[in-house]
């Protein structure tokens, strides 16, 4: 058996109609020394027939569909397929177009997702390393140790996995309103309103966090997000915005979180706290009584 674990694996890239962001970053993984796929024992192949690992970018445009499928079919099994970027996972911002035939998983077996829009080269390497492990596993080979992308000094502002602090959410839903990928959904329930954010549709653009009035939705700088395609729909951020009973009439409502009041009013003065626990109706009644106190009728 000639193909041992020390043999280099070959990668083949397919652009399935991308914005070129993922592709330009993939070029970095063959041009820039510290991100070179050679550090993982991989090389880029010129033809699909030589390749064991496929890296596919873009939402799979209708125009390119046939060609992408033909390129993919040209490679002998076993092969590992990696959907690169939000496009590969879910068509990203391009979903729901007459000109898009993705997501990729509708047409071919996708093994891994590398989230990002585009993913940073470190994330690409991380995903390619996972693909190499998977390939070796499939061949029943022993797994050689792999250098993983160094994690030194991740920029503080790096836009990575979203985080949701339900207790700070005011339920205004502006995040879902501004999200181009349709990644955020709100569900109304008895106990309150629930937010779900599907990471496979997220481009990490941060617009939700920008418009969130209370800082409930933020982006962390966590960029290591490669996961098996089978887990794609479990990659979610979820939170239930609690409702509390009105301190007067007992009706449940979403109280303004302290963070919102701090931002809006520059801190909460003690007298606001009882008001915060009143539902909108009771608060109006209370304010009216307060405002008209001593007014002769």
């Amino acid at each position: 058996m000639s193909d041992t674990s020390s043999h280099p694996l070959h990668l083949f890239r397919i652009n399935a109609g991308s914005c070129n962001g993922c592709d330009v970053e993939l070029t970095v993984t063959e041009a820039v020394e510290r991100f070179d796929v050679a550090t993982l024992g991989c090389h880029y192949a010129d033809t699909p027939e030589q390749a064991q690992i496929f890296l596919i970018t873009g939402p799979l445009t209708t125009r390119l569909r046939q060609e992408v499928l033909a390129l993919y079919a040209a490679a002998p099994a076993p092969k590992v397929t990696v959907a690169v970027g939000a496009c590969g996972a879910s068509c990203g911002v391009f979903r729901d177009s007459y000109a898009v035939s993705g997501p990729l998983e509708k047409e071919i077996t996708v093994d891994l997702n590398i989230p990002g829009c585009p993913p940073r080269p470190q994330a690409l390497l991380d995903g390619i390393a996972a693909a190499v492990r998977l390939y070796r596993q499939r061949r029943g080979e022993t797994l050689p140790p792999l250098a993983s992308a160094s994690d030194v000094a991740v920029p503080e502002r790096l836009r990575g996995a979203p985080r949701f602090a339900a207790a700070a959410c005011v339920g205004c839903r502006v995040c879902a309103h501004v999200c181009a990928g349709g990644a955020i959904r709100f569900d109304d329930k008895e106990e309150g309103v629930a937010l779900t954010l599907w990471e496979n549709s997220c481009t990490f653009c941060g617009l939700c966090a920008h418009y969130c009035p209370s800082g409930a939705l933020t982006l962390s700088n966590d960029w290591r997000r490669t996961h098996p395609q089978s887990q794609s729909y479990q990659q979610t951020v979820h939170g239930e915005v609690p409702q509390s009973p009105c301190s007067d009439c007992d009706a449940s409502f979403t109280a303004a979180p302290p963070e919102l009041l701090r931002r809006a009013l520059g801190g909460t003065a003690a007298p606001i706290e009882p008001l915060r626990q009143l539902c909108p109706d009771c608060r109006r009644r209370h304010n009216l009584t307060f405002a008209t106190r001593g007014v002769k009728r």
Binding site: G17, P59, T61, D96, S97, Y98, V178, C179, T203, L207
Partner: peptide, 24 residues
């Protein structure tokens, strides 16, 4: 080949969503 139907997509997204869509 890279036609994604952008003219159609931008009309299905609001002005805010289009900021992120157009960046792509």
């Amino acid at each position: 080949h890279a036609h994604r139907g952008m003219e159609h997509l931008v009309m299905k997204r609001n002005l805010y969503q289009n900021i992120t869509l157009l960046e792509r």
